[in-house]
Design a protein around this nucleic acid. Structure first.
Length: 277
DNA sequence: GCCCAGGGCTATC
DNA sequence: GATAGCCATGGG
């Protein structure tokens, strides 16, 4: 299956810190585990992405997952026509990023784990969690072994001591309680997708270990409320260093999450590059 | 060994 | 309501 778009870049998506199970296999070739599936993606040029799946699977899963029916160019053009130089640069730099529509439960657990960790460490924790509590699968065409993301019921039944072995640190209690809330029906994630962003955040924040930032990430990446605006260390740096402590995103209110993603990616790549030199 | 990482909870003011 | 210290772990 082949996608053509001006605004899709696997490397940028994989490195944008929104998903943790998309990995580079070789240059311009990535694997992705989501929705109990494992898929291989290649990008021969800036405008083309190939998925190793049927058209049926593509239409059922991946068209939505990659948010392909949304016009990102419209957002970028709007930023490019504005007067904010940082946002212009950020949008131009990250124009292949898309906001993935991840499974709500995976987003919830992943971003609970993410707190106070860097991205490689988050990915390692999540892989351990999947190997331990997910289902072992075999990718048919390559024979690759992979593990699905754990189901709420399985994670809810996890033994505390066993979970501790996965080295989630103090977050293991947060993970356990969140999984139980979903498994026993206290937290209905599917309903939150139909609520407003603000209602979703308010509900999510009732969970022990879920604060404003994690709730916004779940709302954005798991429920696709694109008006969410998660503020982490990197976004804080942007606000402090570029906007003198106050960024007014009301201009971009209904798609603030997309703007935030360009800001995050641009700032992080710039700073990491600087640190590397 | 140091500082930092897609933070949140708790105590204290 | 704001802020400081603490939390557990691994990457750089």
């Amino acid at each position: 299956m082949i996608i053509r778009s001006d605004n899709i870049n696997l490397k940028q998506i994989a490195e944008s810190g929104q998903c943790f199970r998309m990995n580079e296999l070789e240059r311009n070739k990535y694997s992705l585990t989501a929705f109990d599936r494992y898929i291989i993606l290649t990008q021969p040029d800036d405008y083309t992405v190939e998925l190793d799946c049927t058209e049926e699977e593509f239409n059922k899963i991946w068209r939505s997952y990659f948010d392909l029916d949304y016009d990102y160019k419209r957002i970028i053009d709007r930023m490019l026509s504005g007067s904010d130089t940082f946002l212009k640069n950020a949008a131009e730099f990250g124009r292949g990023i898309r906001i993935l529509r991840q499974e709500p439960f995976e987003a919830l657990i992943s971003f609970i784990i993410s707190q106070n960790k860097n991205i490689p460490a988050i990915k390692a924790c999540i892989e351990r969690l999947c190997e331990h509590y997910g289902n072992r699968m075999v990718h048919k065409s390559t024979g690759t072994i992979y593990y699905t993301f754990p189901k709420p019921g399985v994670l809810a039944e996890a033994e505390k001591e066993e979970l501790k072995g996965l080295k989630l640190g103090y977050r293991d209690e947060y993970v356990l309680r969140a999984a139980r809330a979903v498994a026993d029906g206290t937290l209905k994630l599917d309903e939150l997708a139909g609520c407003t962003h603000q209602e979703a955040v308010n509900t999510l924040k009732k969970l022990y270990g879920v604060g404003d930032k994690v709730a916004n990430c779940v709302s954005l990446y798991g429920l696709h409320h694109i008006e969410a605006f998660p503020v982490d260390i990197w976004i804080k740096k942007v606000i402090d260093e570029i906007y003198n402590g106050a960024f007014n995103y009301s201009l971009y209110e209904e798609y603030a999450g997309i703007v935030q993603q360009y800001m995050f990616y641009y700032k992080r790549v710039q700073d990491l590059k600087k640190a590397d030199i």
